[in-house]
Simulated scan of single mutants.
Amino acid sequence: MFRYLLCCFGLVLMYPTGIDMYLVGLPQIANQLGATEAQLHIAFSVYLAGMATTMLFAGSLADRIGRKPITLFGALLFALASYFAARSQSSDLFLVARFVQGVGAGCCYVVAFAILRDVLDDKRRAKVLSMVNGVTCIIPVIAPVIGHLIMLRFPWPSLFYTMAVMGLLVFGLCLFVLRETYSKASFHSQTLPRVQTESFKQGFFISRVVITTLGVTTILSYVNVSPMLIMGQMGFDRGQYSNTMAMTALVSMLASFSTPFLLNQFKEKSLIMFSQTLFAAAALVFILTQLGWLGQLFNLLGFGLVCSGFAIGFGVTMSQALSPFVARAGVASSLLGIAQVCTSALYIWVMGQLEVSAINILFVILAVGALISITLILAVPKLSEMVANEQIPESA
């Protein structure tokens, strides 16, 4: 079991590392490639576009030819794209490399969740996904620090050479340690007949897609607007901003690693409801600070509530979303990833085009997301009830 957990941790971590590590090198990259920093910020969207476009075919292929080939392809592609990004001599080539990097990361991200669906039962999977989420939450803080330390001695291409090495390490890990969790023989003899019964239109899955998508949109909105809120509105300097982000990442990690213990005491539904209550409480804090009823420093409490709510609820809800699927777990994981990435990018872009203030971008998704999610949790039957009513496969 340890081999699967180790490989999945490596596969999942490639996605946030590819986003966060290179940011400290943007000024040097822009200078050397003859582009503005604003032009190169599109590399973030290009990377996510690469992930989104590959997720559906990666999940489908993983359900047909197995998990391991897709992990090997994704990790190797991520490594090669990182190498070519480091060797880029123009902004166009750099953006192409970033897109391909996203393709590699998307393959690894999708299959990691499918592997965990294959080897873990519902309760253990919820715990493991919470721990994976805890490690992922600390990457946005650790990766820029590592990038800064690298650039104290080496030029910006070294950031992407480092990512290339990471891709090769994950490739080696999957090649020599990971065992295939999805046999084609088993697929055709046992699970293929289930494909027709494992519908993506059933209400439980759709509700969990919506809840996880709103959660990811919330946390990415927080990350995106945090500089404007903390340094602009609250008047913190860069050092204080870094410390604040580090503390919220610590809160996320502690909440994530506490969730497996909470699952021993409370039902999954209770934890998901609690996470949405934390989101609603954060929205209340932000509106009170804007009205002047609370001081600006109370925004820090709101940030902590946002991070805690996401950390406690995301892994549990993702586990529930994958529960109904055996034969189509890869595609289910793909649909979750596509919904989360595309909705987040669309929401942030639309709010930016409408020139909505940073605090209101965060407040709207917190308030609306919590309201929709709580309604779905209460309205959609529990998984066990759906099994009893034969709405989903019993073995799910």
Score class of each variant (00 low, 15 high):
residue 361 I to Y: 07
residue 204 F to I: 11
residue 203 G to L: 14
residue 149 L to F: 15
residue 228 M to L: 15
residue 40 L to W: 00
residue 172 G to N: 10
residue 363 F to K: 09
residue 329 A to G: 10
residue 241 Y to M: 12
residue 120 L to D: 00
residue 53 T to S: 13
residue 181 T to W: 05
residue 200 F to K: 03
residue 214 L to D: 04
residue 261 F to D: 11
residue 150 I to H: 02
residue 20 D to N: 13
residue 182 Y to M: 08
residue 266 F to M: 12
residue 111 V to R: 02
residue 389 N to V: 06
residue 354 L to Y: 10
residue 138 I to M: 14
residue 137 C to M: 12
residue 261 F to N: 12
residue 101 Q to C: 14
residue 271 L to K: 02
residue 58 A to L: 09
residue 91 S to T: 10
residue 328 R to D: 01
residue 61 L to A: 12
residue 340 Q to Y: 05
residue 304 G to V: 07
residue 389 N to K: 15
residue 177 V to P: 08
residue 220 L to S: 03
residue 236 F to L: 07
residue 248 T to W: 01
residue 38 A to S: 14
residue 164 A to P: 02
residue 52 A to S: 09
residue 267 K to I: 13
residue 86 A to K: 02
residue 256 S to K: 06
residue 160 F to E: 03
residue 212 T to S: 08
residue 367 A to F: 09
residue 322 L to I: 08
residue 378 L to P: 02
residue 235 G to K: 13
residue 83 Y to Q: 11
residue 372 I to R: 02
residue 342 C to I: 09
residue 129 L to E: 03
residue 136 T to N: 14
residue 109 Y to C: 08
residue 325 F to S: 05
residue 164 A to V: 02
residue 30 A to P: 00
residue 392 I to V: 15
residue 357 S to I: 07
residue 242 S to P: 00
residue 331 V to E: 15
residue 196 Q to S: 15
residue 112 A to Y: 01
residue 22 Y to D: 00
residue 318 M to F: 12
residue 99 F to K: 10
residue 36 T to I: 08
residue 363 F to T: 15
residue 14 M to C: 08
residue 158 S to D: 06
residue 309 G to W: 01
residue 252 S to D: 09
residue 63 D to R: 01
residue 275 S to D: 00
residue 299 N to W: 03
residue 346 L to W: 13
residue 270 S to C: 10
residue 22 Y to L: 09
residue 74 G to F: 02
residue 115 I to S: 04
residue 23 L to E: 06
residue 120 L to V: 06
residue 276 Q to K: 03
residue 84 F to M: 13
residue 181 T to F: 09
residue 10 G to W: 06
residue 272 I to A: 12
residue 168 L to E: 01
residue 133 N to R: 12
residue 133 N to T: 15
residue 275 S to C: 12
residue 55 M to D: 05
residue 160 F to I: 05
residue 106 G to T: 07
residue 364 V to C: 05
residue 132 V to K: 04
residue 73 F to C: 08
residue 34 G to E: 03
residue 106 G to M: 12
residue 86 A to D: 00
residue 246 A to G: 15
residue 393 P to M: 08
residue 199 S to E: 01
residue 47 Y to D: 06
residue 324 P to L: 04
residue 315 G to R: 02
residue 147 G to E: 04
residue 315 G to S: 09
